[in-house]
C-alpha cells in the first residue's frame, strides 16, 4: 500500500464560516517524498488549496506548518519523519491568525522581530575599512545567525500563544542575543533595556518546544538564558 491518507486544514474567509479538515488520498508510489511534494500533488488535485513555499530547500522559511502535531518546514521534512499509521495531518502554524488554508498572518511575529532592532548598531564612527572581528569573536555568532525566521519555534511556544503581543518569542530573542553577542555592536545596554520587563524575556519557562522544532537545529532556549544572564549582570 502506497496510498497516503492526508488531512488538510482548509479555510477560506470569503466562503467558510469556520475552518474544516479536508481528506485526500495520495499515491506516493512508495517514495519517501518531502511534505512539500505532497502539498504540490494536492494542489494538482484541488487548485483552491493555498500554502506558501518558495526555495523548497529549507532556506527561505516560507513553508513552516504543523505536520502531525509538530512544526517544521514542509520542504525539508521527509514523510518517513512525520507520517504515522500512514496518516499525515497538515495544519497552519498554531497561534497566529489564519489568512487562508495553511497561510497565517505573521504580522505579530514580525512586530516582535522589529522590536529587538535586528541590525548592527555601533556608536563609533565607521572606520575606513570594515569593522574587524577576531575568529573567536566571530565564533560567538554561530548557532545564532542561521535563523531564517520561519516562525516554527515561536508558534510552537505556549508563552507566545498566550502573549504574542508582549512576549518577544524564541525567534526574536535568538536574534536579540545574536546582536548582543556581536563584538561590533555597541548597543547591548539599550537592547537589554528594551526587553527588561516581566513579559518580553521572562515569559519563557524553558519548555524547549522551540529547540524541539527548529529546522535549523538552533537553540533559542540557551540564547534566552544568556540574555537573562546579561540582564542580571547589567542590573542597576
Amino acid at each position: 500500500m502506497s496510498t497516503l491518507q492526508v488531512s488538510v486544514y482548509r479555510y477560506n474567509a470569503e466562503t467558510d464560516s469556520a475552518p474544516y479538515m479536508q481528506d485526500f488520498e495520495i499515491d506516493t508510489h512508495g517514495r519517501d517524498l518531502m511534505v512539500l511534494n505532497i502539498l504540490q500533488m494536492l494542489k494538482a488535485k484541488d487548485s483552491t488549496l493555498v500554502f506558501r513555499a518558495s526555495c523548497r530547500e529549507g532556506v527561505c522559511g516560507s513553508d513552516g506548518m504543523n505536520m502531525n502535531g509538530k512544526n517544521g518546514l514542509a520542504c525539508v521534512t521527509p514523510l518517513s519523519e512525520v507520517v504515522k499509521n500512514n496518516k499525515l495531518v497538515l495544519r497552519p502554524l498554531p497561534g497566529l491568525p489564519v489568512m487562508r488554508d495553511l497561510v497565517v498572518d505573521m504580522a505579530l511575529f514580525y512586530k516582535q522581530y522589529e522590536r529587538i532592532q535586528p541590525y548592527l548598531q555601533n556608536e563609533n564612527p565607521a572606520p575606513a575599512i570594515e569593522r574587524l572581528q577576531s575568529p573567536e569573536e566571530r565564533d560567538k555568532l554561530d548557532g545564532l545567525y542561521e535563523c531564517i525566521l520561519c516562525a516554527c519555534c515561536s508558534t510552537s511556544c505556549p508563552s507566545f500563544w498566550w502573549n504574542p503581543d508582549k512576549f518577544v518569542g524564541p525567534a526574536g530573542l535568538l536574534w536579540a542575543y545574536r546582536f548582543m553577542a556581536d563584538s561590533r555592536d555597541t548597543a547591548t545596554r539599550d537592547r537589554l533595556a528594551e526587553i527588561d520587563d516581566p513579559f518580553s524575556v521572562f515569559r519563557c519557562r524553558g519548555i524547549m518546544n522551540c529547540v524541539n522544532v527548529c529546522p535549523k537545529g538552533l537553540n533559542p532556549t540557551r540564547a534566552i538564558g544568556k540574555i537573562r544572564e546579561l540582564l542580571m549582570a547589567n542590573a542597576t
Binding site: 479555510y11 474567509a13 475552518p19 502535531g69 495544519r91 502554524l93 498554531p94 491568525p97 489564519v98
Partner: peptide, 10 residues
Amino acid sequence: RPVNLDLSSI
C-alpha cells in the same frame, strides 16, 4: 480570523 490552536492536534 480563526487561529489554529487545537491543543489536542499539537
